[in-house]
């Protein structure tokens, strides 16, 4: 019961953030010099009357708040407008790209958190030993590496030099399987995933790792850990207990991490030519295709906000103390 109340409160909080986000975007994209009539029609000067008619048609003569309500309503119902560049509804362009993005991003986030938690627990548990001392400093290094540079290095080494992996993209145009395993349905995509996922995991694993390690060190000094030892729990059971409790800060962080992951995602997609919304966004911004840019931006922001909500809910589930 308490959990549902908590969940409802968090959901309401998220709804407010989402509305504020829409206001923010509305203002941001109004920063574009001129209004949509001049942007859409490019450099060609339109007769004043025609421009006026378009304004009325698009509702640009109405008060700002009315325009905002229409704008927000459209975005929320998936009416993302027409692409200037592709001359097609934005939703048709964005939707498949969003799926592609998830195909790349999900393994990056999941593997980063799992590896980070496992290694962080291991380091924290060995606190004070030489290996932990060195490990903690080594863990700083991948966090400092620019993900796009790692991507370039991996490409140069494993795609161009050694030719183990494709040089980018998501699928090969004409891929002819030679052996049985190459015929597996996702083999081609998986092959293309290896390098971008490796680059992504390498750079985003460090934060959950460090947080897990710090939390674990704190947890180790808690009374309940001494008590667990007194109860004769095996070392493995003790470590599992510490990991379980220390995981909570990592969970909080993972919401923020997903936000960062979208940033890293944009860079990864550009380096590896991955046909996702990150690359689409960069291209549309360069091409001044604002409806597409706006839609991709909105989707990423909405995803971050929604994932924040999910993480909050998971936290409430895992830590019963929070619900009150």
């Amino acid at each position: 019961m308490a959990f549902w109340l908590y969940a409802a409160r968090r959901a309401a909080h998220t709804a407010v953030t989402l509305v504020l986000l829409l206001v923010f975007m509305y203002v941001l994209f109004r920063l574009v010099p001129g209004d949509p009539t001049t942007i859409m029609l490019g450099t060609g000067e339109l007769p004043f009357e025609a421009q006026q008619r378009l304004r009325e048609l698009w509702g640009l003569d109405r008060p700002q708040w009315q325009q905002f309500v229409t704008y927000a309503g459209n975005l929320l119902t998936g009416d993302l407008g027409m692409s200037f560049y592709f001359r097609r509804p934005v939703i048709e362009i964005v939707w498949p790209m969003l799926l592609n993005t998830l195909v790349l991003m999900t393994p990056v986030v999941v593997i980063s958190i799992v590896l980070g938690v496992v290694i962080g627990t291991w380091l924290g548990w060995r606190r004070g030993e030489r290996i932990e001392e060195i490990g903690a400093i080594l863990a700083l290094i991948p966090r400092a590496l620019p993900v796009f540079w790692i991507g370039i290095v991996l490409l140069a080494l494993f795609a161009y030099e050694l030719r183990w992996f494709p040089i980018g993209g998501m699928r090969q145009a004409f891929f002819f399987p030679e052996t049985w395993y190459q015929e597996l349905p996702f083999f081609d995509v998986a092959r293309h995933l290896v390098l971008p996922v490796a680059a992504g995991v390498l750079t985003s694993m460090a934060d959950p790792l460090m947080i897990q390690r710090t939390a674990l060190i704190e947890v180790k000094h808690e009374d309940f850990m001494t008590h667990a030892r007194a109860r004769g729990l095996t070392e493995r059971a003790q470590r599992r207990l510490a990991r379980r409790t220390a995981f909570l800060p990592v969970l909080t962080y993972s919401a923020i991490m997903v936000g960062f992951a979208f940033g890293g995602q944009v860079l990864l997609e550009v380096v590896f030519n991955w046909p996702g919304i990150g690359r689409l966004m960069v291209n549309s911004v360069s091409q001044r295709d604002y409806p597409v840019a706006q839609a991709t931006f909105f989707l990423m922001a909405a995803a971050v906000v929604t994932l924040n909500l999910l993480v909050d809910l998971a936290y409430g589930w895992l830590d019963p103390r929070i619900r009150q």
């Binding site: 009374d223 379980r244 409790t245």
Partner: peptide, 23 residues
């Protein structure tokens, strides 16, 4: 030692609040 703990000797610590696993 581990097998001895709790089967032969048990412990009631100062603060049950902190000694029980919160989660």
């Amino acid at each position: 030692l581990r097998r001895l703990r709790w089967t032969r000797m048990a412990y009631v610590p100062q603060s049950a609040q902190n000694a029980l696993v919160p989660v």
